[in-house]
Each structure stands twice: as structure tokens, then as C-alpha cells.
Design a protein around this nucleic acid. Structure first.
Lengths: 214, 214
DNA sequence: GGCGTACCTTACTCCCGCGTAACCTTACGT
DNA sequence: ACGTAAGGTTACGCGGGAGTAAGGTACGCC
């Protein structure tokens, strides 16, 4: 849980205040959505008065975009770090999923803003789309490598389809994770891993995927 | 001279007007979202003045809920009809997916309201949740039957996980379909079918699932 | 100790959009 | 042929929230 704690009556340097404001904004945007969120509430939760928000971070739209960018960067870095230099397509997928769900579990509000609150929302559609393309590209690249090491599939179009299905499934499970406070990121990752890697046919027969390292 | 539908016929029976209003509301809510949508625009698109909307369908919240219910009912009926009395787990899944994506392709605005615009939105969260539970229950039931006919899996928890992953993947692909005006529902269904049924492992090797019916 | 600057506030203006009051007009039964 | 209700309208009250002006207060630096 990101803390929105301090609220000391002390004066605070700009860089710190900006982060506090972004924390507050992410929390409020996640709970209310862009339109229903009010600058007054964001300011109050940040422990500051409204004009300060305008002074540091600009209008409501600019503030939302700033939230979007910060959370997207954090998430991408978390996933990339998790995949690291692992070799083998299944291990790569497994580590990527773990990193992703671990991030979502630790930054539920961030994920909510990133996904639910900005998707298709008109002033932010292009911003969101470009971020999503980055993700799709990365996953696509990993899948291409996996294919190259095994055998020929149906072409680049098939890989793109798999990528979209995979990313979509992960996003949806993340949404499920956010709505269930008691759920475990690791377990969620394992469930999706089984489903994605084996497919329904094998899964219905009771098969399970196992990490070579475990 | 008298046309089939006289243009001067301004007066329209209540039941018809209500459907026109709901059509307009779905379209506007889909484009703008709940907060940003205005009753004035909905009324204008419905070809009527604002007080009529209040007279027939109540407040903005009540209007949105009415849209939600209408579209949800339509979608469930489409999918159930598509699955019909088909036998065999893979054919059931295939028909269900075809019915679902066919509905989404034909009612893009309806799906947008149903999914993007109401998810987690506070006044409508419970409504949305109960509708989703109906879907999950139905899919779960189908999967259980498939398992019973083949062999024992890991228990009800495993089925629930597969169900959530499957429903989530379908929802996400539907979202993708909505954003790509030129895309084909049938093709989308086939792509998801391959991914879901075979799993990434088989898919990366170039395998494809084929309907037994040809 | 004074002075500039960065930090921070109270107290507005103004617009926009929900919901309504009060009023018109066409269709239809009798 | 006329009363009544269903269908329809214009015009406004009013609350809430984005954005701003004008003015404090502490901190660092000479």
C-alpha cells in the first residue's frame, strides 16, 4: 500500500509535494474516475490547498496524464526487471506474469487508473494507446523468440493474435485481483500460467505446468 | 403522396419512444461515459426534449441502469441461443464464442456501456457484479460438464480460475473488436478459440483447432 | 536585520448541466 | 364536437466544481 501519510504542518520542498499530490491524485482518480474526482478532494488528501495543485501540476487533465505516465513507467520497469535475463519461453512467461501481478497487487490504485480509468477516455485515449502498444510490442518480441527456437507457426498475424489474447487475459485477471483484497498475486499468476500455457483441453484433463526450477 | 411513415407524425406511442431514448442513451453513454454524458445530448439524439426523458425513464442514474439491463439481457440471450443444444465441450465453446463476438460486433455501443462504462462505477457496481456472476455461473456449468465427461481435474477451484481467465480473455478481445471497426467477429472468435483450447505451448508449434463439423 | 523567494492560504468568479414548473397541442372516445 | 389525457415544449432555479486573484508566512542569504 502506498502511504499517503505525512501531512505535517511543515513546509515541504516541491519535489516531495509533487509526489504526495500524485499519490493523492492516483488514489482519488482510482476511486472515483476522472470526471467524478474533484480537485478539492485531491488537494485535501495531499494535505494541501487547491491552488498548490494548479501551481505544481497544472489542470485536471494534465494531472491525470501525469498520474498515467508515472504508473505506466513503474509497471513496465517492474515487469522488465522480473523477466530479466531468464531463458526458455515458459520460464520467461512465468517470471513476467509474477512480476506483473506482483506490481498490481502492490499498486492496486495505480493499476486501476492505468487500466480502468483511462481506457477509451477521450482526452487520454492516445496516451493510453501508445503505452499499450509498448507492452504489446515487448510481449510480441518475447513470443517471436520462443517461436524461432521451436518451429514455424502460422506467421506474424498468429503471434499478434496470441499476444492480444495473452495481454487481455492478464489485464482481466489483474482487474479481478484488484477487486479481491484478500487474493494473492503469486497464486493468480500461477493460475493464469496454467491456463495460458496448457490451454483448456489439457487443463480440463487435470494437467499442470511446473517450473523447471521448482 | 402519403409516405409509408409520414414525416409530420411527431407523436409516437410511449413504448416506442422509450426504446428510441434507450438507443440514444446507449450511444451517448458509450461515447462519453456516465459522467460526461449529458441528458440534453441524449434527448437531442432521441429526437425529443429533455423533460420527456425524465417523464419516461427517470433520472440519469435510472436511465443508465435501464440501458445496462437491456443490453445485458440481449447479450445473454444471444450467447445462450448460440450454444443451444450443441454437444461436446469444444463445439460448445466454439459456438458460445461465435455467439458472443457476433453480438459484440453487432452492438458495439451496447457492449461498451455494459463493460467499459459500468465496471466498478460506484452507483452501478452491484448491478454489474450480479450480471457478471450470471455469466461466470453459466460458463462454469458448461466447463463442469466437460470435465465430468473426460476425467477429474483439480477441483472446483481450478474450474473457477479457468472460468475467470476465459471470461476475462473474451471480454478483452471484445474490447479489441470494438476498437477496430474493420475487424471480423468470426475471425476474432476463431483466434480466441485456438488460444484458449490449445494453449500457448501447442500454439507456438503451429497447431490449430478444427471444428469436427468442418 | 532586512529582503527576496519559495511555499501556502482564503475567498472568490463563472460556467455547466441536472432536474422541474408551467404551459401548449394533437388524438381519440363518446 | 368537445373534454381529457397522453405526448410534447420552453425556460429557468440552483448546486457544485474548475480555475484564479490577491494576499499571507517561513526560510535562506547577504
Amino acid at each position: 500500500m502506498a502511504s499517503v501519510q505525512p501531512v505535517t504542518s511543515k513546509r515541504v520542498p516541491r519535489a516531495v509535494r509533487e509526489q504526495q499530490m500524485l499519490d493523492a491524485a492516483v488514489s482519488v482518480f482510482a476511486r472515483r474516475g476522472f470526471q467524478a474526482a474533484t480537485m478539492d478532494e485531491i488537494a485535501e488528501i495531499a494535505g494541501i490547498s487547491k491552488p498548490m495543485v494548479y501551481a505544481y501540476l497544472g489542470t485536471k487533465e494534465e494531472l491525470f496524464t501525469a498520474c498515467l505516465r508515472r504508473e505506466a513507467t513503474r509497471m513496465l520497469e517492474a515487469v522488465i526487471a522480473a523477466v530479466g535475463a531468464t531463458a526458455g519461453p515458459d520460464e520467461q512467461l512465468w517470471n513476467g506474469l509474477r512480476g506483473f501481478f506482483s506490481f498490481v497487487g502492490a499498486h492496486r490504485d495505480g493499476w486501476t487508473v492505468l487500466y480502468r480509468r483511462s481506457r477509451g477516455r477521450e482526452p487520454f485515449a492516445s496516451e493510453w494507446h501508445s503505452m499499450r502498444c509498448r507492452v504489446v510490442e515487448i510481449v510480441s518480441l518475447l513470443l517471436s523468440r520462443a517461436v524461432a527456437g521451436v518451429g514455424g507457426p502460422g506467421g506474424p498475424s498468429a503471434i499478434e493474435a496470441v499476444t492480444y489474447a495473452l495481454v487481455g487475459a492478464a489485464e482481466s485477471m489483474a482487474d479481478w485481483l484488484v477487486d479481491h483484497a484478500d487474493s494473492d498475486p503469486e497464486r493468480t499468476a500461477a493460475r493464469l500460467m496454467n491456463f495460458v500455457w496448457l490451454g483448456a483441453e489439457d487443463l480440463l484433463r487435470g494437467a499442470t505446468w511446473r517450473s523447471a526450477a521448482g
